[in-house]
Amino acid sequence: MGGRRGTLTDVVSSSDVWDEEDAATYDADGAEYFKPEVLDPTVDFLERLADGGPALEFAIGTGRVGISLAARGVPVTGIELSAAMVAQLRLKVGEGELPVIVGDMATTMAPGAGSFSVVFLVWNSISNLRTQAEQVQCFRHAANHLRPGGRFVIELWVPPIQRLLT
């Protein structure tokens, strides 16, 4: 992971900030995650949960999941901390097709808050929030964006148990 670490002065300030160099190589570095056999099950799942309603992606990055979901007709909005990552996303899709707000995933409000069918945070991005307080704030923030009955989905790796024993 590249990027700079911020200060610990407020909620989410300890999140990694992806700079232009990191953003420029992000898709190539994670090319295996763009393969249909990896990406399609995630997009299928989120499309089912959206059930015709809008979706909000926290930490949308360069748009790996959000763009694919929007291409299926799900209205997607993103929140992304790094303007450099949004610039890479904009090389693929315009603001009219997929609006993105530059800000952090634990405090930045998206238009339509309270109306999203699903809020999602994929590819271990919750781990960019380094403290329990930041993570709790992110959960609260997701809840504030969801309509009644909406879902908050987090994708997070599970470490091999052997690594935990050493």
Rank of each mutant, 00 (worst) to 15 (best):
G94S: 14
A143R: 11
I60P: 00
S117H: 02
L146F: 08
P36H: 10
S15L: 05
G53E: 02
P54I: 00
L165E: 11
V136M: 03
A83G: 13
P41S: 11
G96I: 12
V17W: 03
E37A: 14
L165V: 09
F45M: 12
P36W: 14
G96V: 14
H141V: 02
R90I: 07
L98C: 06
E134G: 14
V100Y: 01
L121H: 14
G96W: 11
L156N: 09
P159I: 09
R48V: 05
K92V: 02
P148L: 09
S68M: 07
I67R: 04
A83Y: 06
A24I: 06
S117N: 09
L121S: 07
V122D: 11
G66L: 04
E134N: 15
M85V: 07
A50E: 02
D10A: 15
T77M: 07
G61D: 03
V86N: 05
H145A: 01
M109P: 01
V93Y: 00
S125C: 10
L56D: 00
L129R: 01
L8A: 15
Q135K: 14
L129M: 12
P148N: 15
A87Q: 03
I126F: 15
R72Q: 10
A113W: 08
T131L: 11
L156S: 13
K35S: 11
G73P: 12
L91S: 11
S115G: 14
W18A: 13
G6M: 07
R151S: 08
D104Q: 03
D29C: 06
E155R: 05
T131P: 04
S15C: 15
L69D: 00
S13H: 08
G63L: 02
G149S: 06
S125F: 08
L56S: 00
V38A: 15
G61A: 08
D44V: 10
V11G: 00
G94Y: 05
L164M: 14
P54L: 01
A84M: 09
A28I: 03
D22W: 08
Q132L: 15
A106R: 01
G78D: 08
I161Q: 07
P54A: 12
A70V: 05
G112H: 01
R72H: 02
Q135A: 09
D10E: 12
D51P: 08
A110L: 04
E20T: 13
L39N: 05
D19L: 06
N128F: 05
S82G: 10
E47L: 01
P160W: 04
L91I: 07
P99V: 04
V86K: 03
G103Q: 11
R90Q: 10
P148K: 07
Y26H: 14
P41N: 12
Y33C: 05
V11Y: 05
E47K: 12
V136W: 07
P148G: 12
N124D: 15
L91Q: 14
A50C: 04
G103T: 09
V118W: 06
F120R: 06
Q162N: 10
Q162A: 15
G52T: 08
G6L: 14
S125G: 14
P54Y: 00
V76K: 04
